[in-house]
């Protein structure tokens, strides 16, 4: 019998995430998947899971689960206090949780999203090849609620990474390398200069769909309406208010606001850990 986890405290927003869904964007299906993918992969490797085994992604306030059999877990990503039945245990390293004990990943002390990985992976039902919760289109498991029961898969498929791994610190300032296009020509030269010279800040309206920013608006050179077109992960879309939005994993697959540039995917993990108010600079790259 494989273990089950009962959700004791679901937190502000906790979802199941893996590497997401590929190859269905033409049907309107977002990629989804862990926003801080390197954190998910590192947590999994510390447990001997496949790197993309499904994990829990928390938001600011963490979550707590109770296994019905002993399990090994790693809580990583955004730093937070971790306890087992109230006793402090290490963050960022494998922890044994006895049957019936409560593992609590607490509120973050930095960053936004912690990841709770369990040896064997979270065995939610896959939809279109992924167990990820997609908050835009509602595919995959619903966000966790108190009392939910999660199945855990078979553990021990790969050797675990020994020792303690280095976890990158959440960013004090977010630097996002951006390549202009496909619709940079919809903006004034001044707007293109503003994009890479001004300092923006992470807006409280950010979510898994996009990192919204506050700062100087980017002025359009043309006022027409853009016919809907495909959108990539990391696209910097500029809605009518002129404040750039960086598309994260639950972004819509097509959209009608011009994309001034695209942020490198490798920078999006840091974007997912940038708290509200963090300074954001877009740099050519």
């Amino acid at each position: 019998m494989t273990p089950k986890l009962t959700v004791v405290r679901s937190g502000a927003l906790t979802t199941v995430q893996d590497a997401g869904r590929r190859g269905h964007a033409h049907l309107g299906v977002p990629r989804s998947g862990a926003l801080d993918a390197p954190a998910m992969r590192l947590a999994n490797r510390l447990l001997g899971n496949a790197p993309d085994a499904a994990v829990l992604e928390t938001t600011l306030t963490g979550c707590a689960v109770r296994p019905d059999r002993a399990v090994t877990v790693v809580v990583g990503g955004a730093p937070c206090p971790v306890t087992v039945d109230g006793r402090p245990v290490p963050w960022g390293a494998p922890v044994r949780v006895p049957a019936g004990a409560v593992l609590d990943a607490g509120g973050v002390t930095a960053g936004v999203r912690s990841y709770v990985a369990v040896a064997g992976g979270v065995a939610a039902e896959p939809v279109l090849g992924s167990r990820s919760t997609d908050l835009l289109s509602g595919l995959g498991p619903s966000p966790l609620r108190d009392g939910d029961v999660l199945r855990v898969g078979d553990s021990g498929r790969e050797p675990a990474l020994p020792g303690v791994a280095p976890w990158p610190a959440p960013p004090a300032e977010l630097t996002l390398p951006v390549r202009l296009g496909p619709r940079a020509d919809w903006f004034t030269p001044a707007a293109l200069r503003t994009l890479t010279s001004a300092t923006y800040r992470v807006s409280p309206h950010s979510n898994r769909i996009g990192l919204r920013t506050e700062g100087p608006p980017l002025e359009r050179a043309s006022t027409g309406e853009l016919p809907s077109e495909g959108m990539v992960l990391g696209a910097v879309q500029v809605p009518p208010d002129g404040r750039p939005v960086v598309f994260l994993h639950d972004h819509p697959t097509t959209g009608g606001y011009p994309v001034i540039g695209v942020v490198a995917e490798s920078a999006l993990a840091a974007a997912a850990q940038a708290v509200v108010g963090t300074p954001v600079r877009f740099v050519p790259g």
């Binding site: 964007a25 033409h26 495909g230 697959t253």
Partner: peptide, 12 residues
């Protein structure tokens, strides 16, 4: 991904 739009095709 091959994602058509109104007057575009995105190759991602």
């Amino acid at each position: 991904e091959i994602v058509p739009g109104a007057r575009t095709v995105l190759l991602d």
